[in-house]
């Protein structure tokens, strides 16, 4: 039965379902058991599954690294890294082992691990609690990178991530954890690697994910153009076909992300559009992104993050009607 849930509740209910469905699923991380996670995303799970939900020592490299071993014994580790920028402490385990173990052993050892981690700005959190490193994770072959943009999407994508045979970095936008409720079906799986056309239109394609999707939707409404809004949902592997088909139709495109611009995913997405839809383009491809600065502390956070106004300006530039 479908329920009205917030994103953080959708995370919790998905984990509950997967723990119940598959005895191999193990949930662990800092403060995830007794406290239910700092965002309460795992609240109550330890009561139902005390033998498979664990608090972990404060050791992010350890949390990621032991996942390689857990998976080798046949388990499906679903650790939480408390904030995405703390995953930098485990990045070497991700790049050196998690992502490579399948290819270096020619498939004899695999790592079906889903690392959940809250990310992104907009909640006035402490320094280094607001990064968006999806481009960095996407640059590591062997990993999949997924970002949901709503409670129902969270259910469908997290279900697919936990069941996926490959390692997934599942980035949850903290700003959306409690921002709105949505009907979430009890059983829902969205295949990884498939983008969602959120809104159909003919004049311009706008691509955004995570909390930027809502800003983008607001922006196109403000502009009043017939925009096709696409949420890639899976950043790696990227659904190039859906994006390219849309741009072939509209001839114009704006890519939005809150991560810094240089070497961000907008660069990759626009490159792919250039490769496959160049002769359909009617205007230069636009990027609306965070600036190339360390994500500032929260007093300046709102000035750093792209918002509907900046996105609207980008859409106007793409439409060449500004």
């Amino acid at each position: 039965m479908a329920e009205q849930l917030r994103m953080v509740e959708a995370v919790r209910e998905t984990l509950r379902t997967e723990l119940g469905r598959d005895d191999d699923v193990v949930v662990y991380g800092e403060d995830v058991a007794r406290a239910g996670g700092v965002f309460r995303a795992t609240e109550g799970l330890v009561d139902d599954y005390p033998e498979r939900v664990f608090d972990a020592p404060v050791a992010e490299s350890g949390i990621v690294g032991i996942g390689v071993g857990l998976a080798a014994t046949g388990l499906r580790p679903v650790p939480e890294i408390q904030f995405q920028s703390f995953l930098y402490q485990g990045f070497h385990q991700l790049a050196q082992h998690v992502a490579r173990i399948r290819s270096r052993t020619r498939g004899t050892i695999t790592c079906p691990m889903t690392i959940r981690t809250p990310y992104g700005g907009g909640i006035h959190a402490l320094e280094l609690h607001s990064e968006s490193f999806e481009a960095g994770f996407s640059h590591v072959p062997g990993l999949k990178v997924v970002i949901p943009s709503s409670p129902a999407e969270t259910k469908g994508l997290l279900t697919a991530a936990v069941r996926d045979p490959d390692p997934v970095v599942f980035m949850e936008p903290t700003r959306l954890y409690r921002s709105f409720r949505e009907e979430v079906p009890e059983h829902h799986e969205i295949p990884l690697g498939e983008a969602r056309v959120v809104d159909s239109g003919d004049d311009v394609t706008v691509i955004a994910w995570g909390s930027m999707l809502r800003e983008a939707l607001e922006a196109v409404e403000d502009v009043g153009a017939s925009a096709e809004v696409i949420d890639p949902r899976t950043l790696s592997p990227l659904d190039t076909a859906t994006i390219v088909d849309s741009v072939k139709k509209t001839g114009r495109c704006v890519v939005v992300h809150e991560a810094p611009r240089t070497a961000g995913l907008a660069g990759e997405i626009t490159a792919r559009i250039n490769e496959e839809a160049f002769f359909y383009l009617e205007a230069p491809l636009e990027r609306v992104t965070g600036y190339d600065v360390p994500v500032p502390m929260f007093a300046r956070e709102d000035d750093y993050l792209p918002d509907s106004e900046r996105i609207a300006a980008g859409v106007h530039r793409a439409l060449d009607d500004g």
Binding site: G69, L70, T73, Q96
Partner: peptide, 17 residues
């Protein structure tokens, strides 16, 4: 020094099962 963590995951995973 990266692989002892994998051995801990294995040693824990075997115990959990």
């Amino acid at each position: 020094g990266t692989q002892p963590l994998h051995a801990v995951g294995i040693g824990w995973g075997e115990a959990l099962q």
